[in-house]
Design a protein around this nucleic acid. Sequence first.
DNA 1: TCCTTAATTGTGATCGCTCCCAATTTGACT
DNA 2: AGTCAAATTGGGAGCGATCACAATTAAGGA
Lengths: 348, 348
Amino acid sequence: MTKRADITIDDVAEAAGVSRQTVSRVINRGPHVKPLVRDRVQKAIDSLGYVPNLSARRMAGSRSYLILAINDRKRTIENWAAGRGNDWVDQMLFGGMTECERQGYHLLFELIDTETEPALRQLANVSGALRPDGVILTPPHSDNEALCAWLTERSIPFARIGHRVGSHSVDVFMDEAGAAHEATRGLIALGHSRIAYIAGAPNYGASAQRISGYEQALREAGATLETSMVATGGFSFQAAADIIDGMLKSSPAPSAFICDNDEMAFAALHVAASHGFSAPQDLSVISFEDTPGVRFSVPPLTAVRQPTAAMIARACERLIAISRGEEGWGAFQIPYELIMRDSTGPAP
Amino acid sequence: MTKRADITIDDVAEAAGVSRQTVSRVINRGPHVKPLVRDRVQKAIDSLGYVPNLSARRMAGSRSYLILAINDRKRTIENWAAGRGNDWVDQMLFGGMTECERQGYHLLFELIDTETEPALRQLANVSGALRPDGVILTPPHSDNEALCAWLTERSIPFARIGHRVGSHSVDVFMDEAGAAHEATRGLIALGHSRIAYIAGAPNYGASAQRISGYEQALREAGATLETSMVATGGFSFQAAADIIDGMLKSSPAPSAFICDNDEMAFAALHVAASHGFSAPQDLSVISFEDTPGVRFSVPPLTAVRQPTAAMIARACERLIAISRGEEGWGAFQIPYELIMRDSTGPAP
DNA sequence: TCCTTAATTGTGATCGCTCCCAATTTGACT
DNA sequence: AGTCAAATTGGGAGCGATCACAATTAAGGA
């Protein structure tokens, strides 16, 4: 095993015949370096294969070149443990990593608890250890004012995904109400009049927005809002199945279901089949998640595709800009996509 | 915004009335600290909310408390872009993060190219910047000797997932041949005699092992091996569909398919349906992936569940042990699971 | 041509921690 | 009690970069 000393900035400086500081300027694209010198230094960097040590940069400077993405531990672990997977995490990684890499940053992913007290402690720990240049909060943490206050107090830039009220933060969200409105309107246009909405959890912020869009579309169509058509299925197959079963037994039964996630949409298809109904002939189903599996369900699900990757990418981009001292705060709406597949059709 | 100086080890030392070094010993669970002093220091740490700065630790010491997991860029990005997702990534994160967190480490996830030359450059960059205490190589990189040599040369401990030859590395794998053998034997027991194997890619190491297990099971049953029953479907729905279509048109057609991934297994179900066959009555299908979607296909797929999370967790655990100076090298076989669902049944 | 100002380069000091080694205390055993 | 070794503490150097500022060089104008 060859012993090889690591190459430092001083090695490069010596090789290029300049001072350490000049090399640093070249690395950081700083001004005040003659083009001739810059080239010479760059050549030395390349030939020596020099890579700046992030830890040292963080120690000396104010940046860590790290973005920290935070997810809810309970929900994430449950999904993993249940074999349900976390497509959301996968999407986050896609968007976040791609953007970070583009900018010479690195994305770190961590889980913290839902309850404020342990969450705060865990955030303090990971943020204290890593000193990220920015933190991305996803639901439900993006709505946690205590966490946001903690970050604000310490001047750590943060982004809130799925939140659109923020003052001194980066808010990145999609138009949940608009998507639900469009989905509902589409079903109405297909002749559906009894459209049920199966929400995830009562405290799930996006649900409220979606339901308002759903109700608005119904109102615009002159339909009456029936509370019996809106229920909460806990994001789970079984709970949703029970509810949907009840709805299909009522009369008149709904002819269309909008579900907050794929699993509940699958439940709708499944329960409908047990009643002898099949989509899209006898009923229509739209999901609000669009995980990879929906392409292979029977029939493939029509779904609102959440722009998770794009939202995280945007969040990273803004946070990195802020860490560079540029302007970055603001609210950013990312377009969603309603993907028509075969689970929706004309009302029977 | 309150200006708050960060709490350093010296603050703790002062508060506890000891030297910096003693605090360091307490943090690192070093020996040679009186229990009484240890308690006093620990109390100071807790009350001040002190968290050691990872960058500083890395600068001064030899550890970075970072484990780097590396994935193939091309395949990963393609999956993401195609909306196919990367359940594998999700699983890696699950296993890796859980274990790292348990040990006070952090997991970093990065993508590098397939070809050796750029891969080497990218590995040098990320490893130079982050100085991880260990690197996890996943297929196909786990079979790349150039990468392994590079890491060995620099004394960076690494783990190879799905590889079982390694000398100075941590090898973590599952019994691919055994799993294929068990799956095949199961089909034979159900009366199937014409069993096709749809492999992923020609250079996909696991395929070769699985096929050998598959062939062994056939041989043990006294069946003849037909080369026409083994084909490569490129992991893709369409390519696999074409191949399977051809097989089903031949006579006698296979009555069972073992596929290297879920997507190709879905293709089998789909194509079979177009021929008027449906599983499990007319044919059986087994997949070698088990992503979350298989639970909702019709019928739900019987599949070999890859212990991805467990493999990554084990790799992290071993690498962390090594970074602590303990013994860690070796080969570790992680048990797989053959999950019976409804896509397999008696031969027609 | 000389002087002022701007553009370029270089020089410690410093970030927070662990390393190595010396100083001190404690304990065990003559 | 006295000695020697072991256990416990502390002190200073240094990791590899950036920062603030000083020193140098080049450019522009009278």
